[in-house]
Each structure stands twice: as structure tokens, then as C-alpha cells.
């Protein structure tokens, strides 16, 4: 039962994109269409599961002080594997995702789950967490990709929707539409789950840089006070 909870929490209650607000860059960049969103989701999920398992297995071997560089090496290794597999078997998708595929390395979801979950839990729990979070990430990406593709291009996964096509607003698939749809989607999730787990501020606990970031904002406040 506990294991099921770990698997399911990533999908809705702690959805990495819409609730934890992690991994915003790929969410905005690869959701111009359903297919690229799905490809990005699956690639990131594969890396997330593998890195969670390996980091969890090595959690006693990695010294605490150098854990972030060690995690980055593990994650970068798996990203390279995914890149090479994709280039070999799905060259079209590889070209479509371009630089964002390599940028999975610095995706906060993956580093964040390593830091928040995998280094404290067993291998099986970490794998389940990776699967759940990966599904949550993919699901959010596909929902957003669907909204943007249907409204912006009048198609869904390349299939033409004749009822909507004449009214398509192309700006939704362009850069501004990404920000707008993402903002509205988060607001909708806040509304639906109001009070329960709505996040008002940018999620920092998941980010490995949180301590430095807080320090940065604190220091400027201190500076202002002394002025």
C-alpha cells in the first residue's frame, strides 16, 4: 500500500510540473506539439528511473560533500545513452528535441528527486518514485502539448481537426503562448486543489541550488536594510 502511494503521489498530488513547479524549461520548450511533448516526457522518465536506481544503490558509497557532482555524472551518463539510442532509432524525434534532449542533464526534476528522495530511500522505492514522477511529468507535458497544438495549429498529434482548424491562433504554439498556457494551467490546478497543496511561490526545496539561491535573496535584503 505504501509502495502504491509512492507511485501515485508523483502523478497528481506532487506532480513535478504543475504542483512542485520543477523542470519549467523543457515544459515550455517542447510542448509545441503532442508528439514532441510525449517524446520529451518518455526520454526524461527513462533517465529519471535509471538515475534514481543508481543513485539509491550508491547512496552509501557517495560522500556527502561531493554528492551533487556525483549525481550530475550519473545523470549525464544516462542522458548520453538516451541521446544515442534516440539518434539511432528515432532520428526525427532527435532532431525535433534538439538541444533540449542534452539539457535533461540540468533538469531540476531529476536532480531534485535524487536529492529529495533517492539518496534517502531504498532501490525499489526510488524506482517507483522515478516511475511515478516520470508519468506525472509526461502527463503534464502531454496535456499542455495538446492544449497548445489544438488551439495553436488545429491538429492533435498531427491529425487535422477540421472543426477547429479555421479558428487556430498560431501565437499559442509560439513562445508567448507557452508562458500563457502554463500560467493558466497552474492557476487551474491551484483552483481545483485550493488550500490542499497550492504553491504560491516558486518551488525551491526541490532545487539543489536552493541554499545558494536563498542566500542570494537574503543578502540583497540585508544590503537594503543596511542602506
Amino acid at each position: 500500500m505504501k509502495k502504491l502511494g509512492i507511485l501515485l503521489k508523483g502523478i497528481i498530488k506532487e506532480n513535478p510540473v504543475l504542483v512542485l513547479l520543477l523542470g519549467t524549461c523543457p515544459t515550455l520548450a517542447t510542448t509545441t506539439g503532442v508528439i514532441s511533448a510525449l517524446a520529451m516526457g518518455i526520454a526524461a522518465t527513462a533517465v529519471l528511473i535509471c538515475s534514481n536506481v543508481v543513485i539509491s544503490a550508491l547512496r552509501k558509497a557517495i560522500p556527502d560533500k561531493v554528492r551533487i557532482p556525483a549525481y550530475i555524472v550519473v545523470i549525464a551518463g544516462f542522458v548520453s545513452v538516451v541521446q544515442m539510442l534516440m539518434q539511432a532509432y528515432f532520428p526525427d524525434l532527435y532532431d525535433m528535441l534538439g538541444v533540449y534532449l542534452a539539457l535533461i542533464v540540468v533538469n531540476c526534476i531529476i536532480l531534485g528527486r535524487a536529492e529529495m528522495f533517492a539518496r534517502k530511500n531504498g532501490i525499489i522505492d526510488s524506482a517507483l518514485d522515478g516511475i511515478g514522477m516520470g508519468i506525472g511529468f509526461t502527463l503534464a507535458l502531454v496535456v499542455m502539448g495538446s492544449i497548445r497544438e489544438i488551439l495553436g495549429a488545429g491538429t492533435w498529434a498531427g491529425i487535422e481537426l477540421t472543426a477547429i482548424k479555421p479558428y487556430a491562433v498560431s501565437i499559442v504554439t509560439a513562445a508567448p503562448g507557452g508562458f500563457l498556457v502554463f500560467g493558466c494551467l497552474i492557476a487551474l490546478v491551484n483552483k481545483l486543489f485550493a488550500g490542499k497543496n497550492a504553491k504560491k511561490e516558486f518551488a525551491c526545496e526541490g532545487c539543489p541550488n536552493a541554499s545558494a539561491c536563498n542566500k542570494a535573496s537574503c543578502e540583497s535584503e540585508v544590503k537594503e536594510e543596511t542602506k
Binding site: P176, I186, A194
Partner: peptide
């Protein structure tokens, strides 16, 4: 802003408008 838009959502909407300017 409306309650559910406060914080990050309204910031993203504002970013969208700045992005339109850059277009």
C-alpha cells in the same frame, strides 16, 4: 490578481506579454 492566479501563474502570464513584445 484572482486568488488562484497569485504568485507564479500571474508571473507567467506577465512573462508571456513581455515575450510578445520581444516577438
Amino acid at each position: 490578481a484572482p486568488e488562484c492566479f497569485k504568485g507564479i501563474p500571474i508571473t507567467l502570464v506577465a512573462a508571456s506579454i513581455v515575450s510578445v513584445a520581444f516577438m
